[in-house]
Design a protein around this nucleic acid. Structure first.
Lengths: 196, 196
DNA sequence: ACCGGATGTGAGCGTTCGCTAACCTGCCGC
DNA sequence: GCGGCAGGTTAGCGAACGCTCACATCCGGT
């Protein structure tokens, strides 16, 4: 039945961990970390219950790796744009666009990252927090460069607010993707330019 | 020991339900609905475990009443301002200010309302959703009146985005209350005025 | 041909959860 | 001053949870 047997199957097997993480993200986003059982996650990828422990050390480890890779991706993308050069306004627009794209491409991940930080192991939470702080710092620098007359703390608050603005939309899609990206970018940049 | 014995004590007893709801809100906001046990809530108000069932029918009922009263309060405050008259810009500013005040006065409530809708009973969720829809509608009308050239769906998305902006800040308070209220109002109105 | 590691299953463990039951206590109205 | 009710306690039930274990299966390399 499968047209291209080995490579696709092999690909699927190698991607089991990511497949599990994607399913878990969806479930965590909808019901919360403690509202999802090991069996639910297993069922969502077609295996059942304890088979997950062939791929992850624990349920906490799934969340830990999920949030870890998200914050890593965001920080990397943010610093890359910061180092790319351009005017302050261009950099800010690039950061906004980057974050918006991520939020709309991975609504479940953004939701989990926003809501389930407190459910991490202590050590996982420390790591994720550190990455998040660095990411916020990239934004703070960009905001202060583009919007004159803003203190560091005000810029930090504004950054968090803009994250909230962007992250809130994933599950409220009344608009087409293209139009929504455009609207969110305008809203975010409009907010920031009114901050000074 | 108590200075004014009867009235205060009686007041406290009459307020037991609200006292429980306030403690539960804090716990739900931090750990998620399923991450909080009946015993945790009891301990937070100085009684232990099953005594809660003298005041609430179930754990779900606590969340249900909590989210119900929040959405009721928001809708009431929103419609009151909508009916108060004034220019479209003034109305929008009043709505923003109202929502910001609520978010900063009751950070835990706003957080729970944002994150734990899915944990409600089906019937509770229907009721809360209905109230929320009406509240959003108040905003949609106000936004379209104040910002020309915005379709209904764009206005709805913008409203959700602004809720996200405002609701995100409760636990990120680097600024004093006064300054934060001011900043959030400017950000929200700046975002909306850039939406057109 | 066969062995070994990777992957999955089902049973079942100890714990925790939401909730009920039975009982106790102090206060208010008669 | 006493009876009843509001509000609290502890014990414990049944279910669900995270996780381990012993065992089955499949598949690639020698």
């Amino acid at each position: 039945m499968p047209a291209n047997p080995t490579p696709l199957v092999r690909g699927e097997k190698a991607n089991r961990r990511e497949q599990i993480m994607a399913a878990a993200a969806e479930l965590f986003a909808h019901h919360g970390f403690h509202g999802v059982g090991i069996d639910d996650i297993g069922a969502a990828v077609g295996i059942s219950g304890p088979a997950l422990y062939r791929h992850f050390r624990s349920k906490d480890a799934i969340l830990g790796e999920m949030l870890g890779s998200i914050s890593h991706y965001l920080l990397e993308g943010g610093t890359a744009r910061a180092e790319a050069g351009g005017t302050p306004a261009e950099l800010l627009a690039a950061l906004v666009r980057f974050h918006v794209d991520f939020a709309l491409d991975h609504p479940a991940l953004i939701t989990v990252q926003e809501r389930n930080l407190a459910n991490l192991t202590d050590s996982d939470r420390r790591q994720v927090r550190a990455l998040q702080r660095q990411y916020v710092e990239v934004w703070v620098q960009a905001i202060r460069a583009a919007v004159p007359g803003l203190g560091e703390r005000q810029a930090r608050s504004a950054a968090h607010a803009v994250f909230g603005l962007i992250n809130s939309t994933p599950y409220n899609r009344h608009l087409g993707d293209e139009e929504l990206v455009d609207l969110l970018c305008r809203l975010a940049l409009g907010a920031l330019s009114a901050a000074g």
